[in-house]
Simulated assay, not measured.
Amino acid sequence: MSPRGVAILDLRERLFDAAERVLAREGPAALTSRAITGEAACAKGLLHAHFDGLDEFIAELVLDRFARAARQTDGLPAQAGRATVAGNLVTVALTLLNSLDPAVIGLALTRPAASLRIRRALEAGSPGFAAIQGAIAAYLDSEQRLGRLPDTTDTSSIALALVGTVHHLLMTSWADVPDPREQAERLVAVLVGAGPGGAAATEDLP
């Protein structure tokens, strides 16, 4: 155990990971500060020593996962001209679906104080879906310049539709809806079709 007040390497990530494990194993009702620190093998009061209560902790967990998802899309524009447009979009959609636990977001939505913290942080510029949408739009613009998407393609609307769908899938219960990964793949097929750079293009450009 780590005594209260002693710095722990990567403490935030350690507590965040522990909270996700508790949620996955026991559900939202079991998520208490004691359960989190116990799962993380930390001193019982450590969470409250670094966060202003459970609401702030949950808000910071969601914001951290949003920021991580945004970082994962940073390199997407550099993928222009590689593989297929459809394949690249499916990959980023599945990455986003796997990087954010719907149970965590669902829990935040049931706690008004946590939801308010998240909204204010995003409004202040914390990385989130807006940054992800921007990266996807920039990638599609690059593909358009390479001729792998028609000049008439509305890249901003495709980015909005994809991010909006992923956001919706993350906000709904996976247990009661079709596989979100399959839904994401079908959406991408509709958005980019099987034209140049779409599902039918399987080889990298020279």
Rank of each mutant, 00 (worst) to 15 (best):
E26S: 14
P102G: 00
R21T: 13
L46Y: 04
R145Q: 11
L146W: 05
G45P: 06
D101W: 05
A29V: 12
A86W: 02
A67T: 03
L100C: 13
R25F: 05
D151R: 12
D64F: 12
L100A: 08
A19W: 05
A49V: 10
S115F: 11
A30W: 13
G125W: 06
R117P: 08
A29Y: 05
A131E: 14
Q79W: 09
R145S: 09
Q79Y: 11
A78H: 10
G128H: 00
R14F: 02
R65E: 12
E143F: 01
L15K: 00
T37G: 05
T110E: 15
G75E: 10
T95I: 15
S99Y: 03
L149N: 02
S142N: 14
R82H: 14
E123Q: 14
T152P: 00
A80D: 06
G27W: 07
A70V: 00
Q133V: 01
A135Q: 13
G75Q: 03
G27T: 07
V22K: 07
P102K: 02
K44C: 06
R25P: 00
R119S: 15
L109C: 11
E143D: 06
V85I: 06
L47I: 10
A40I: 00
L107E: 08
H50W: 03
T73Y: 09
D17S: 13
A59V: 04
T95Y: 11
A124T: 09
K44N: 13
G125A: 07
P150M: 04
R111Y: 03
H48L: 13
